[in-house]
Design a protein around this nucleic acid. Structure first.
Lengths: 116, 116
DNA sequence: CGGTACTATATCGGCTCCGAAACGAATTGA
DNA sequence: TCAATTCGTTTCGGAGCCGATATAGTACCG
């Protein structure tokens, strides 16, 4: 089980994807922001500020600020939890799903091109 | 030919590696810095500020500053080109090689753990 | 009711990065 | 020889993210 990958291939994959990201030049996400985005889209809901802060091992204000930034990019949205109004639930958006879909396809495409 | 990888696996791989990087908490590199570092270590020398700027599609000051930062981390060094003293050649270091070796191993390990 | 605990957010300096422009040093070429 | 070009760096003002701390709103509990 698992994807067979040698270190040199792993680094080459990482290199090309990163290069692609930089070369595009547009707005790129911080490692933290990317971690948050992927967590929201890949792990089971609901997601809260507190939960994300704990999982990433950073402070809650850091999460709030990252949500501000990515919210402005429409990569995700916030909604107050009606059951417990102290909580905020982070939700997915169409734009965010598209963003990650493109990222996934790009990684797959680059992995496909790795030969030896 | 090529590494077989589905989009969901690619995103999961990206997610876990990014999460690992964030969770470590130490200083993480910018996408640009990572792109520079990987280019220097994976592509054939010599590497110059001008060449890196062109390849990444960013300005030369951006390269200079990234080299300052990663130089302070001892991930690479600069040396004046004796043949043409206007040029600066970017060179690899033991620390940089170790850093990337660890990164490669981590990616391999995570890819290994991807099952379905 | 009143206090305590918990949520997320706002605020505060500090740090790093950014692009554009200006700069000094080295090389080239007429 | 000396003006023009090339190279990397420095400077400048601006923008973003950081952690620590303080704040406002909500829930719980005696």
């Amino acid at each position: 089980m698992g994807i067979a990958l040698r270190p040199s291939q792993a680094l080459k994959l990482w290199h090309e994807v990163t290069l692609d990201q930089v070369h595009d030049g547009q707005q790129d996400l911080t490692a933290r922001q990317m971690a948050i985005l992927l967590t929201v889209y890949l792990e089971v809901p609901p997601h809260t500020v507190r939960g994300l802060a704990k999982q990433l091992g950073v402070t809650k204000p850091a999460i709030t600020r990252a949500l501000d930034t990515m919210g402005a990019m429409k990569l995700l949205t916030r909604k107050r939890d009606e059951a417990d109004k102290r909580n905020v639930v982070i939700q997915r958006t169409v734009e965010g799903a598209l963003y990650l879909e493109r990222l996934g396809d790009r990684i797959v495409s680059i992995a496909q091109g790795l030969h030896r």
